[in-house]
Simulated scan of single mutants.
Amino acid sequence: MDLNYLAEYLPVLMDATKVTAILTVVTLILSTVIALPLSVVGLRKPNAFSAALDLFTLFMRSIPTLVVLFFFYYGMPYLGLVLPAFAVAVVGLTLSAVAYNIEIFRSGLRAVDPGQIEAAEALGIPRWRIWVNIAFPQAMPVFLPTYLSNATLILKGTSVASIITIPELTAVSNEIVSLTYQPFEILIASALIYVVLGGALSLIAAAVRRHLTRGLSAGPVRSAPAMKASA
Rank of each mutant, 00 (worst) to 15 (best):
T17F: 10
T17R: 00
L23K: 00
T27A: 01
T27I: 02
V33E: 01
I34Y: 07
A35S: 15
R44C: 08
R44T: 14
N47F: 02
F49P: 07
L55Q: 09
F59D: 01
V67H: 09
V67E: 05
V67I: 13
L69E: 06
L69Q: 07
F71E: 08
Y73G: 03
M76A: 15
P77W: 10
V82Y: 14
A85E: 15
A89D: 04
N101M: 00
I104Y: 05
S107E: 07
R110P: 06
E118Y: 09
E118T: 12
R127S: 15
N133M: 12
N133V: 10
A139Y: 08
V142A: 01
V142M: 02
Y147M: 02
Y147R: 01
T158Q: 03
T158H: 00
S159L: 05
I166E: 08
I166D: 07
V172Q: 00
S173V: 08
S178F: 08
L179C: 04
Y181G: 02
P183I: 06
L192P: 06
V196L: 09
G199H: 03
A200Y: 13
S202Y: 12
I204Y: 10
A207V: 13
R210W: 11
H211L: 14
A218G: 13
G219W: 09
A224P: 15
A224I: 14
P225W: 04
A226C: 08
M227V: 11
K228T: 12
A229F: 12
